[in-house]
Simulated scan of single mutants.
Amino acid sequence: MSDLAGKVAVVTGSARGVGKAIAQRYARLGASVVVNYSSDEQNARRTVEEIEAAGGDAIAVQADIATPAEIDRLFATAVETYGSLDIVVANAGVEIVDEPVLDATEEQFDRLFAINSKGAFFTLQKAAKLLTDGGRLINIGSSSTVSPVPGTGLYSSSKTASRQLVRVLALELGPRNITVNTILPTVIAGAGVFTQVTEDDEFHQVNAGMRPLGGRPGTPEDVADAAEYLAGDLAAWVSGQALLVSGGAVQ
């Protein structure tokens, strides 16, 4: 188990799903956590309450990651509250699946790229300027950027930009001993567009059959395991990498 005592972590899009699991994990490991949300204040407050009930320290901060000025406010609040910034997870994102490329609209394009590409870019850029030397930047990408999947052309395209950005930032921030990595989750039960889909659902039963490990769909805790590793001392020599969290499947 990693020791994050004394660290300050910001996890964007952490009111629920994968972001929530990561925020809760970091808090259990001793970090002070900033729970970010765009519009879901109720679940963000609930996440903070659950962290505090378990003995952790957290605050909720509203900020739309698609707006750089709001990212500035998010990080300013984190530093004002806790005094430093050590770990940032760029998790906020939006999904559209089962949408053929020929049916994608300009409105959908603008929405996905504003959050998944522009939002991730400025989250990582602005975090890097404030991060303590030896800090950790983690981007949550998508396994759909590894292998092409019909119906995900728009979504996977919007996620590909930040994956390349991570590789470049790892080189630029290396002299400060800041690691920069990407986690590429597969379909995760209870997260994103699959939030309301249970493990007993036929979709997940079929999907789980494609996973060599465990014969089950992925969970937010699986992604939090990877995020714990990349935030801790064991990953101090790992940077510029993309970790596929897919139960052994290629996507």
Rank of each mutant, 00 (worst) to 15 (best):
S2W: 10
K7D: 07
A9F: 06
V11Y: 01
V11A: 07
T12S: 13
G17F: 04
V18I: 14
V18L: 12
A23I: 07
V33C: 04
V35W: 04
V35P: 03
S38E: 13
S39K: 14
S39C: 09
A44W: 00
R45F: 12
T47Q: 05
V48I: 02
E50K: 11
A54I: 07
D57E: 14
A63Y: 00
D64G: 06
E70W: 06
D72Q: 03
F75H: 00
F75K: 01
T77N: 11
A78K: 02
V79Q: 12
E80I: 08
E80G: 01
T81G: 10
Y82V: 09
Y82A: 14
L85G: 05
A90I: 07
E95K: 15
V101G: 08
V101W: 14
D103M: 13
Q108G: 10
F109E: 03
F109H: 09
N116A: 02
A120T: 05
T123H: 12
K129Y: 15
L130D: 09
L131W: 05
L137Q: 02
I138Y: 05
I140H: 06
G141A: 09
S143K: 13
V146D: 05
S147T: 15
V149M: 14
V149W: 04
G151L: 00
G151Y: 11
S157Q: 04
S158H: 04
S158M: 12
S162P: 10
S162M: 15
R163N: 06
L165W: 05
L165C: 10
L165A: 11
R167S: 07
V168M: 13
A170Y: 11
L173I: 00
P175Y: 13
P175T: 01
N177H: 13
N177R: 15
N177Q: 15
T179F: 02
L184H: 15
L184W: 08
P185G: 04
T186Q: 15
V187K: 09
G190R: 10
A191R: 06
A191G: 05
A191Y: 03
G192E: 04
G192Y: 14
V193I: 14
T195M: 10
V197S: 00
V197T: 07
T198Y: 01
T198L: 01
D201F: 00
D201W: 00
V206P: 11
V206S: 12
V206Q: 09
A208W: 03
M210I: 07
M210K: 09
P220N: 02
D222T: 01
A224V: 12
A224H: 10
D225G: 08
L230I: 10
G232M: 01
G232L: 03
L234S: 15
A235R: 07
V238G: 13
V238C: 03
L243E: 09
L244H: 04
A249L: 06
A249N: 10
V250S: 12
V250W: 14
V250L: 13
Q251Y: 14
